[in-house]
Design a protein around this nucleic acid. Structure first.
Length: 105
DNA sequence: CGAATGACTCCAG
DNA sequence: CCTGGAGCCATTC
């Protein structure tokens, strides 16, 4: 793994504004990666000082061992999870359209 | 080098 | 909408 790759991932994750989230796959794309698993691995090892809680699965669920902490952190930012599941359609952050009205499906 | 593992994703049923 | 099963990528044994 190149150092640059890690930097890219860190940059993307840090860029996600509070109140919004991204999927591992999304972060992978923005960072120029092709695998979401790699993003997960990087966050697992180097995500301690990053807003890693703003990254979740594409379906809005999160890994079991992180479920509690992650959902709690998101909740403090206004991202509410229903049934242990976050509404990606509502909170998903798109760099090109961050001004989409919340709740406006 | 092959097999197992994990903060994942997609497709079928 | 929920479950399984297969695919994927990099790392570790």
């Amino acid at each position: 793994m190149d150092e640059r790759t890690w930097e890219h991932v860190r940059t993307v994750v840090t860029t996600i504004p509070p109140g919004y989230v991204l999927g591992y796959g999304d972060v992978a794309r923005h960072a120029g990666l092709r695998s979401a698993r790699v993003v997960g691995r990087i966050l697992a090892e180097d995500g301690a000082d990053l807003p890693w809680h703003r990254v979740l699965r594409s379906n809005g669920s999160v890994a079991e061992h992180l479920r509690h902490e992650q959902l709690e952190r998101l909740r403090t930012e206004g991202v509410l999870a229903d049934g242990g599941r976050v509404d990606m359609r509502r909170y998903r952050w798109e760099p090109s359209a961050p001004f989409e009205l919340p709740g406006a499906e």
